[in-house]
Design a protein around this nucleic acid. Structure first.
Length: 283
DNA sequence: TATATTTGACCATC
DNA sequence: GATGGTCAAATATA
């Protein structure tokens, strides 16, 4: 769905509105999921409050209710259905089993991580999604980078991330991020597996500080349980979070062939990751 | 000092 | 043998 923007709307304002629309869309999806479950009323109530809060914010920003967008329309499910292991858990076991079968001849029966290096099922059996985006945003999950590698015939390195709670909660979600185009910048994020973790460090407050370079000021939008505030702030566009809310992806692209503000971009990508191509702006 | 990132090595798969 | 996903020691950062 195309969003009709007022002509005088700045780019940064559009970005803020777009982010809010994404949040509202996701909250609505969660609302519909919860509606079909026997979950407690408090969960449904909280989601309802989130939707209402986002709608109110959009209203304040003068966005009509009908301007929603379909957030994940371009998500591609590319799971390997011909794999012997369709189930993610099974696939993990399958992978580890393969490792054991090849390493136990020289090791004890106890899992020895050192001897399991590089052990994985290259023919991925996990469900995957790919998203291309001109910017790196975030998906609300806590990721930790665990590797970076130059890929054959690729101009830019691939970055490997796993869920921060992989060991705490056994979450098997990972993602790969690779810049696939320089100008205009285009990043491909491939998600592997679903999060099974609960982010215990999540905080109800999210401060979005966003403005474009063409603006002298920016808006600070702060969400908490009950209040919404919008205030003018510095001419920067970044997301702020309370300490411990997320693991910032540091300047992981420093070794890339060009830099193009990727440090800041990677700092941004921890929160929401969606395909900006899903949104068409009448600029 | 704790935590996160970088980076070379390892190794299964192709 | 080439490739690419993961590990973990070394290093950086807060």
């Amino acid at each position: 769905m195309e969003v009709s923007w007022p002509e005088n709307l700045s780019t940064s304002r559009k970005m803020v509105i777009r982010e809010l629309m994404v949040g509202r869309e996701l909250a609505k999806q969660l609302q519909s999921v919860l509606a079909n479950t026997d979950g407690s009323g408090s969960e449904k109530y909280l989601v309802m409050k989130i939707v209402k809060s986002l709608s109110d914010t959009l209203f304040i920003l003068n966005v009509k209710e009908g301007d929603e967008v379909s957030v994940f329309s371009q998500i591609q499910a590319v799971s390997s259905l011909d794999s012997p292991c369709l189930d993610t858990g099974k696939s993990e076991e399958y992978s580890q089993e393969n490792c054991k079968s090849t390493t136990t001849t020289t090791t004890t029966t106890l899992p020895n991580k050192k001897n399991r290096r590089g052990c994985y099922d290259r023919r991925r059996t996990l469900q995957t999604w790919k998203r291309d985006s001109p910017t790196l945003i975030n998906d609300g999950q806590a990721w930790r980078k665990y590797g970076q590698k130059m890929i054959h015939n690729a101009k830019y390195p691939r970055h490997y991330f796993r869920c921060s709670y992989k060991y705490d909660q056994g979450c098997k979600a990972t993602k790969l991020v690779q810049r696939i185009q320089a100008n205009p910048p285009l990043y491909r994020t491939t998600y592997l597996g679903h999060h099974t973790c609960k982010d215990l460090h999540k905080h109800p407050e999210l401060i979005l500080d966003c403005s474009g370079p063409e603006e002298d000021t920016s808006m600070f939008i702060s969400f908490d349980n009950t209040n919404l505030s919008i205030k003018q702030e510095q001419p920067f566009c970044h997301l702020e979070s309370p300490p411990g809310l997320m693991t910032m992806l540091s300047s992981t692209l420093e070794s890339d062939h060009d830099h193009d503000n990727e440090d800041e971009i990677y700092g941004l990508m921890e929160f929401v990751d969606f395909n900006l191509d899903d949104f068409q702006f009448a600029s």
